[in-house]
Design a binder for these strands. Structure first.
Lengths: 209, 209
DNA sequence: CATGATTTCGAATCCTAGTTAGAAACCGTC
DNA sequence: GACGGTTTCTAACTAGGATTCGAAATCATG
């Protein structure tokens, strides 16, 4: 019930809680690949190693399951990036904070979490009622980025004429879209991170080349 | 039958051809919003102003209809951007060509075509067999961009150390993702275009600030 | 190891949506 | 304004998939 952010995959938890977690993982996996309407409980169950009806012991309905995946997806990147930023030395320059956020967002999205790609890809596909919880989370995350940009511009580290809103959305888009093409086998994540950071440094920033 | 790229919405064509076009338009509309599995023929029919079974007079199956939407979506942006580039003075600098391509891709995607957003959003959701035709088209379009980037780097207009492949994909991603958030009511498309171009000019290019 | 609670399963139900068939409506043409 | 072809409709048919139900299996604990 206390569907907090659901521990990534560590806590020893009760038997039931772990099965529940396995179902959520499976749902995230399927949802991120097949989309909202394409997510069948049979597939989720198979992936989780049980039969479809068993899902109903842990979730009231398919929609509730999906709603939670969407929420967890949004909440986790947010929490992860926020944590890393909070751990930074207070003196860290605003632009450097953005660069860190870029790196962490990309790594989390591409390495860790089916949840995040599921929530990203289905943000506009899931029916309204299911979006409430995750939308709030996304808004909060957007806010974090807005603050990062504002701080950087105040510090004169972003071009003064920059449209903060548009450039922020373009940047997030470039990163989110990476899930569509990035492939661990062909590309180094380090290169991707570096290239994205350079796009910020040189494309948005005021520093020297 | 000669499902070429299907005229955007002008040609006087036969009665039948126009209904067929209306169905395709409707399918693109629904597909871009609901995803592959969520695209119901009833919705497509309603949107096109007829009953679901009527669709079968023009298309052999739901999948065939969707396959064509995907193909047309990919083909049209490609054709549009290619045409505009071809009409440019031969002397146009490589970097300027990229800026033009950025502008045209964005305008086409956001203003003209549900097809394009449909094909973009569902590229990874549509089952393999349906992807063949559109995938080929997308590959050709990717190739166009690869050439643009290569030419610009050869001309010394892109940073020499730039990872062409990764930066190209990030740029395309930023643009494709714009369909998820850009709203004609709140944002000016001109601002978006300008900001995206600046990201290229300053973020990837070698020119002066 | 017996017992009650927890968890999962197989079978059945019900609804949705793709598809088909045949009948009507429409359209241009003589 | 009747006729043959074209286009669309209404009324089934069917399969897939969410959900429910009650029985089985599993588990923890005395």
């Amino acid at each position: 019930m206390s569907s907090s952010i659901t521990e990534p995959a560590s806590a020893p938890q009760s038997k039931s809680a772990r099965t529940r977690g396995r179902i959520l993982d499976a749902a995230a996996h399927v949802l991120s690949r097949k989309g909202y309407a394409g997510t069948r409980l049979v597939d989720v169950a198979t992936q989780a190693g049980l039969q479809a009806p068993a899902i109903y012991y842990h979730f009231a309905s398919r929609d509730e399951l999906i709603e939670e995946v969407m929420y967890v997806g949004a909440a986790r990147v947010h929490a992860h990036v926020a944590d890393v930023l909070a751990a930074l030395p207070a003196a860290t320059a605003p632009l450097d904070r953005i660069l860190v956020a870029v790196e962490e967002h990309l790594r989390y999205e591409l390495l860790i979490s089916d949840y995040t790609t599921a929530s990203i890809r289905n943000a506009n596909q899931v029916p309204e009622p299911l979006r409430a919880k995750s939308a709030a989370e996304e808004a909060a995350y957007a806010s974090l980025w807005r603050d990062l940009f504002a701080a950087a511009q105040d510090a004169g580290q972003l071009r003064a004429d920059l449209d903060l809103s548009v450039s922020r959305l373009l940047l997030l888009g470039a990163m989110n879209w990476a899930a569509e093409w990035w492939n661990p086998r062909h590309r180094s994540l380090d290169d991707l991170v570096r290239t994205a950071q350079d796009m910020v440094r040189y494309g948005l920033g005021t520093g020297p080349r």
